[in-house]
Design a protein around this nucleic acid. Sequence first.
DNA 1: TGTACATCAGTGAACGCGCGTTCACTGATGTAC
DNA 2: TGTACATCAGTGAACGCGCGTTCACTGATGTAC
Lengths: 212, 212
Amino acid sequence: MSSSDRHDGRVPPPTSTRYHHGDLRRALLSAAAEEIAANGVAALSLRELARRAGVSHAAPAHHFKDKRGVFTALAAEGFALLHAMTTEVLVAEVDDALVRAGECYVEFALEHPAHFAVMFDAALLDYSDADLTRERDIAFDNLYQAVRRTTAAEEPELTMQVVAAWTVVHGMASLWLTGNLPYPRSRDQVSLAFRDLSPSLLRIAQAALGDR
Amino acid sequence: MSSSDRHDGRVPPPTSTRYHHGDLRRALLSAAAEEIAANGVAALSLRELARRAGVSHAAPAHHFKDKRGVFTALAAEGFALLHAMTTEVLVAEVDDALVRAGECYVEFALEHPAHFAVMFDAALLDYSDADLTRERDIAFDNLYQAVRRTTAAEEPELTMQVVAAWTVVHGMASLWLTGNLPYPRSRDQVSLAFRDLSPSLLRIAQAALGDR
DNA sequence: TGTACATCAGTGAACGCGCGTTCACTGATGTAC
DNA sequence: TGTACATCAGTGAACGCGCGTTCACTGATGTAC
């Protein structure tokens, strides 16, 4: 830690080694996302995050109570990201808002696999965290809105359609992330996959109804 | 460890404390399933499994190389269970084999959540394990067979329909396990949920195609 | 503009703990004779 | 049927390690005056 790289202006240089990190919370969350994406949720330790952020192992305690706090913050961030992506689609007032919102869901999962892995895992999260539940609720709101754009159905049919739509995109995201979809794991494949799978989905649904 | 409970016959009493466990491998896998279902995959330790099985902490090494070995054996067992369940449906030669096989998938996930949690998580598994890949492949075979019962489609449409069917049941199982389906987490709700959701699924698929 | 001070993010040493692994051992089982 | 022996599942003590947590501290920042 030489004295030359202490601070050279109002905005601290993010690459130099300084006593105060500047944005350690952000850095720890990013490190957590990388670590989880690479080695899974079971491998995460706070000391490892501190190491990745180039900070002493006691530093994270200033930003997160414990490991659960990191997972919870990551999940909240994930819901916020998903909400932002789907909101973009909804405000565009396009015809196929539901399909586009569904594509958002899958694109989000592919781009942020660590967030996705954590968002629905009750064993990892602290649901008394107001941030988490708020972000989750507003993200979920957008799904409801997207479904409403394609149907005039009232409850309880509306909820059934929300569940059906969510089921499809959630299944798709999960299978894709686990390498079980015949497409490369890339965001720009999502629209193509939707186009390919929609007719098959229709066939499957028809078969399910017709065979009864 | 009194001398009175050593062995009183050919078949060792499973409840008494004996030097040789009798079926430790099984007991460890069951303990692992319980532990994972209760506290998640991240919480599992070999020492805890030994404790649950009432055996010294060094004993598991005789049956599993390491934690990954336990996860891998659990996943293989899961695929075998799923295969057995779906085979039952297929040999029955019913009309709605695909729907029934799909119900099997969701029922399996609800009844064996720990197995399900482990089966598709690449970070936990050793894919060089012949048991695992064999059981996975034969389980997957049954899904293909079930789809073939409803369609004369050839490749690549056949694979698309397999993927579509898998997507739906996998999404359903995942959301159900995470408490996001409006049904109690019970096996006998699965058929009902299928009946409720199939029309909604059809509507969603139609909307996806119609809006393009 | 300069100085004093409160605040707080980050340090680094220390701690106790549960973990996986190793190893010489022991108890039980089954098989050869 | 009885005895000797090989095999191996399970024991328990020991080890080193990475972990989370605590705590007195220090360096940087921002604000009051």
